[in-house]
């Protein structure tokens, strides 16, 4: 009897231990993905290549982030040198050297595109966690670019979000997004995000090369590449302040 109980208990432990591999909920999948993308602090350098019918345009940037809700992006390419974007206390601020005041973006203005790219300022402001804004439904599993991925549907809880619906394909092993599609309320596909490469730094796996295409614009696409990343580093004091923005 004792032996039977022991076997049953061991079997149960193995079953429970193995359970996440077979029965992860949509919430858990998204949470693990966000854990990968949200860093205590980071310094990331990269470039943005915006393609449209007129050709390609390249910009470089350096980004400082703290958690999910604070970042400072400074553009370092010649044509945008000195321009900055600050996320601070839930608001987005733009700084241009030729302007004597910062521009605070709110409401509909957040839907404007960043440097004419397929990425909007609103895309940059998701900081509360997707669970606050969306309900998740696991639609199953598919293979994306040779990797097994969870397919998760995100349905907006309110109208106060950029997209009424999203579908994300999350790498089943590494919990990094491989592909995303964003939709309007009427079902129209608005954007497609493809992760072309990922990188791992200090145990965090996140996209290092992705392409965003705005489905409402012709001949349009934006690629973002990370050229260097440092995670969990000490950042300069006060870097996320409005004073630092204008310095």
């Amino acid at each position: 009897m004792k032996k039977l109980s022991f076997l049953a208990g061991t079997f149960a432990l193995l079953w429970i231990g193995a359970a996440p591999v077979f029965a992860l909920s949509a919430d858990e999948i998204i949470e693990r993905m966000e854990r990968n993308q949200t860093h205590p602090t980071s310094i990331i350098e990269g470039e943005l290549v915006v393609s449209d019918r007129f050709g390609d345009r390249r910009s470089t940037f350096i980004s400082h982030t703290e958690g999910a809700s604070r970042f400072l992006v400074e553009f370092t390419s010649r044509d945008e040198r000195g321009q900055k974007i600050l996320r601070h206390d839930g608001s987005l601020y733009l700084y241009y050297p030729d302007a004597r005041e910062t521009i605070r973006l709110q409401g509909a203005a957040l839907r404007d595109s960043l440097l004419g790219s397929d990425i909007s300022y609103e895309d940059m402001t998701g900081g509360r966690g997707l669970a606050d804004d969306y309900r998740f439904t696991l639609l199953g599993e598919e293979r994306v670019e040779g990797r097994q991925a969870y397919k998760v549907e995100l349905e907006a809880r309110s109208t106060n979000v950029p997209y009424a619906k999203q579908i994300l394909w999350v790498d089943a092993e590494r919990f990094v997004m491989l592909r995303g599609e964003q939709f309007a309320r009427n079902g129209r596909k608005l954007k497609v995000t493809e992760v072309l490469e990922t990188t791992e730094t200090d145990g965090y796996i996140f996209p290092s090369h992705l392409r965003v295409t705005d489905q409402t614009r012709r001949s349009s696409g934006t690629e973002m590449k990370i050229t260097s990343s440092q995670i969990d580093v000490e950042l300069p004091r006060g870097i996320f302040s409005l004073e630092e923005l204008t310095w």
Binding site: F54, R57, L94, D98, A99, E101, I103
Partner: peptide, 18 residues
């Protein structure tokens, strides 16, 4: 007073000025 405007540039980027 002063006014700040955001605009596009010849190099197809953006700029703001006051």
């Amino acid at each position: 007073d002063s006014a700040t405007f955001l605009t596009q540039t010849r190099v197809r980027g953006s700029n703001a000025f006051t």
